[in-house]
Amino acid sequence: MFERRMDWQIKQVTTNKKQFLSLLLLADEQESMIDRYLDRGDLFVMYVDEESWIAVAVVTNEEEGVYELKNLAVDPAYQRKGIGRQMVDFLCRHYQQTGHTMLVGTGDSRQTVSFYQSCGFTYSHTLPGFFTENYDHPIIEDGKVLTDMIYFRKRLS
């Protein structure tokens, strides 16, 4: 899988996924949590050139036709430039061929929730206590300690 735009390209990476850990940790700050899904997930990397990656995403197949965006991270130098939205759009088009739903779980931070809503996701459900039960330290986003994971869904067809 490969897509090219004017100044970047997206490739699926199947080997040596941990080389992208520095970017993955921007979206999920505990390596042991990333280890839970990285090997079983599809890793996509957005490159400016072969040596400069600017965004990553990991998508897992959760059940027949249902995929979950587990990690989406953009290098801070490229944030707020539409890169994350371009990656989400690419992933939704890619998985539309084999699936009907994309899920994403996130913390209850205004910025992240509004981002996914602007990408066409709608509220699905909440996993109470997810962050406090699964992370070895408090997860803080936008000055707020995260407790519950909020799930959003998007129809792919």
Rank of each mutant, 00 (worst) to 15 (best):
E50P: 10
T15Y: 01
K11V: 10
M149F: 00
F115M: 09
E50H: 09
W53R: 02
Y78V: 15
C92N: 12
Q79E: 13
L127V: 14
V74M: 01
D7K: 08
L72D: 09
T101W: 10
S109T: 05
Y95D: 00
Q117K: 12
Y47I: 10
L72Y: 04
L156V: 01
C92H: 05
F20D: 01
T106N: 01
F90E: 03
D148R: 06
I139P: 02
Y151S: 04
R36H: 06
I150W: 11
G107E: 04
G82Q: 04
R80P: 00
G65T: 08
Q97C: 00
Y95F: 14
R80E: 14
T147K: 03
Q79R: 11
Y116N: 06
Q97H: 05
D28E: 14
I140R: 11
S157F: 08
R85I: 07
D75P: 02
D148Q: 13
K81W: 02
S52C: 06
E51Q: 13
V66W: 01
I150C: 00
K70L: 12
Q86G: 05
H125L: 01
K11C: 15
T15M: 10
L146K: 06
E3Q: 13
V58W: 14
Y37C: 15
K11R: 14
W53V: 03
E63P: 05
D7N: 12
Q30L: 10
D7S: 04
V58S: 10
M46Q: 11
Q97M: 11
S114Y: 12
W8P: 00
R5L: 07
S157W: 06
L26I: 14
H137W: 04
T126H: 02
G99P: 04
V74R: 09
P128M: 05
K144Q: 15
K11H: 12
I83S: 00
